[in-house]
Design a protein around this nucleic acid. Structure first.
Length: 563
RNA sequence: UGGGGUAUCGCCAAGCGGUAAGGCACGGGACUUUGACUCCCGCAUCGUAGGUUCAAAUCCUGCUACCCCAGCCA
């Protein structure tokens, strides 16, 4: 468990004050997702805020599904969300709850309010409600039903519950202040009629409470002390307090809402609405498509929960709107992978090499350590043969400036093997190199005296005869192309998706990888980190790209092009 | 003069009157059987204009910019 020793945040400052002043004796939080989609990386900030705050104070955190809108919610999502939270390593020690458990409690409070004149049934049409709400700068107007007799509202509300009225024909509203400068206080809706089957309560109810009414009640019923939420609820806070205050006789707790800024990542879509669109339009294979910013996708791609936790820990918790650089997330993933992932050789975009002075059919078994920094991770043997594959980008017929790799007349070391020199190459009609003929320095075998001399480049390789075919799926870690203009339409959104977000490479891997298991992670030298995917429909091993290495080579190449 | 918020390095973010932490990114160097990793070094006077003070990013005043709110969504 992370112990944010020496690290604090403004929320904990508030809580410290609350504890000192005696407003609360202990701390209880809750994580309240709506089960209308899978969790994405953005949710991790709230997850950490809720669960780690409880831990920090020795308190508990509840998991409560905010399922008050049966039109959008499904059981699939509640299962998925729980799996993702467990995977991240958080435990809802405070218990598992559903807002739908409180439907009766909410109803009882609503009836009480009607009786006390704090709520009324409004029969205006949705359009009339909107019009009478006023605008940001003009006050709203009272509904003609606002001062109807209590008995009438009570009767109508009971009839609503009994299913005697059509959807949209009436709602129950709080009676607060239609002239409030805060739009949320202009008689907010408490209940609407919805003849939808709820994923948990079925057809038991046909009226459903609104967030502003149900959420504070859920918090208070669970004796949550600190209800942490994102900035957009800031001006709902007075309403939250109004609800708690006016229902206090029926509620055991007095929660306090505190807001913080949500997580945005550069070039990453965080809106469930858009993510859902990608899934429904078949742009991606599902919520766990490795290109998605969802937790299940990151899990499948090979991200580790510790890396994500580390990331969330580093971004901090504050109130300023922010957009965190994706590079930080990738750094965290890379950092934990570099310690634990064994190194391995695989060639993603193969180019054949023939060693003309290596005897046909002769094999040399070479020993390679699994991790240069961790000898305890052991070693393995790899077969060296006359024909090999190297990466296409590791050969240039004519070298660019500062090119450290193979070119005609140049020497290069093959990792843990021999030093070779390129003599000539074959090209196809389009001028693409198809095969490079080389000579080996037979005296340069790894570990021998002759291997000690310096050569400027070292390349990874796979035996053409002993290596195994594999498929590497190289995912761009992002879903959006950079775009200066803020295009906001849905079609524009789909067009802005990175078209090169997925490249399927048919390559070769060293023979020792034959035993790799689903979820195993490796650093393919110079190519980045990869994870064995469960999906192997073609009987070919599939490796998902997790994250690339920092690649200063690209900058060198760009620099040499430009001058 | 609608209300509610936020402004500290390219991106996050500490700081809470005593003279600007840290991370990512970036630049330079060392090392290197993969231009990675690792290791050194460098990198801000705090949105703006005034004021208070011996002393202000921190207090006060006025500006400016950006975000959120007009769902019978959450």
């Amino acid at each position: 468990m992370e112990t944010p020793v020496g690290k604090t945040n403004f929320i904990w400052d508030f809580i410290d004050e609350d504890l000192e002043s005696g407003r609360y004796q202990s701390v209880h939080t809750r994580f309240p997702p709506e089960p209308n989609g899978y969790l994405h990386i953005g949710h991790c900030k709230a997850l950490a805020a809720d669960f780690l705050t409880a831990d920090h104070y020795g308190g508990l955190c509840n998991l409560r599904f905010d399922d008050t809108n049966p039109a959008k919610e499904e059981n699939e999502f509640v299962e998925g969300i729980m799996e993702d939270i467990r995977w991240l390593g958080f435990e809802w020690k405070g218990g598992l709850f559903f807002a739908s458990q409180y439907y009766q409690a909410c109803y009882d409070i609503a009836v009480d309010w009607v009786k006390r004149g704090l709520a009324y049934v409004d029969e205006q049409t949705p359009e009339e409600v909107r019009e009478s709400r006023g605008t940001l700068t003009e006050p709203g107007k009272n509904s003609p039903y606002r001062d109807r007799p209590v008995e009438e509202s009570l009767r109508l509300f009971e009839e609503m519950k009994a299913g005697k009225h059509a959807e949209g024909s009436m709602i129950l509203r709080m009676k607060i202040d239609m002239a409030s400068p805060n739009m949320n206080m202009r008689d907010p809706a408490m209940y609407r009629i919805l003849f939808k089957e709820h994923h948990r309560t079925g057809k038991e109810w046909c009226i459903y409470p609104m967030y502003d009414f149900s959420h504070p009640i859920g918090d208070a019923l669970e004796c949550v002390t600190h209800s942490l939420c994102s900035l957009e609820y800031e001006d709902h806070r007075v309403l939250y307090e109004w609800v708690v205050e006016h229902a206090k006789d029926m509620l055991p707790g007095r929660p306090r809402q505190i807001e913080f800024s949500r997580l945005n990542l550069t070039r990453t879509i965080m809106s469930k609405r858009y993510l859902r669109m990608l899934v429904e339009k078949g742009v991606v294979s599902g919520w766990d498509d490795p290109r998605m910013p969802t937790l299940c996708a990151m899990r499948r791609r090979g991200y580790m929960p510790e890396a994500i936790r580390d990331f969330v820990d580093r971004i901090g918790l504050a109130k300023a709107d922010s957009e965190v650089d994706l590079a930080l997330l990738e750094h965290c993933v890379r950092e934990s992978l570099s310690e634990t992932a064994p190194r391995a050789m695989a060639v993603l975009r193969p180019l054949k090499i023939v060693l003309e002075n290596w005897p046909e059919g002769e094999q040399d078994k070479l020993t390679i350590e699994n991790h240069p920094g961790h000898p305890e991770m052991g070693e393995r043997t790899i077969t060296f043969t006359r024909e090999l594959y190297i990466e296409q980008e590791d050969f240039m017929e004519v070298p660019a400036r500062k090119y450290f790799r193979l070119f005609i007349g140049g020497e290069v070391r093959l990792k843990s093997a021999y030093i070779i020199k390129a003599e000539r190459c074959d090209k196809d009609a389009d001028g693409n190199v198809t095969c490079v003929y080389c000579t080996v320095d037979l005296s340069s075998r790894n570990g021998s005296e002759g291997a000690l001399r310096k050569v400027k480049g070292t390349l990874h390789w796979v035996s053409a005869t002993q290596g195994l075919p594999m498929e590497a799926r190289v995912y761009e870690p992002l879903l959006m192309e950079d775009n200066e203009e803020e295009t906001e339409t849905k079609k524009d959104f789909l067009e802005r998706l990175n078209p090169r977000s997925l490249e399927v490479c048919h390559g070769y891997m060293e023979e020792s990888l034959a035993g790799a298991k689903t979820g195993d992670k490796f650093q393919f030298l110079r190519m980045g980190y990869f994870c064995k995917d469960p999906d192997s429909t073609e009987a070919l091993p599939v490796f998902n790209h997790i994250v690339g290495l920092r690649d200063t080579f690209k900058k060198v190449m760009e620099g040499s092009k430009n001058g």
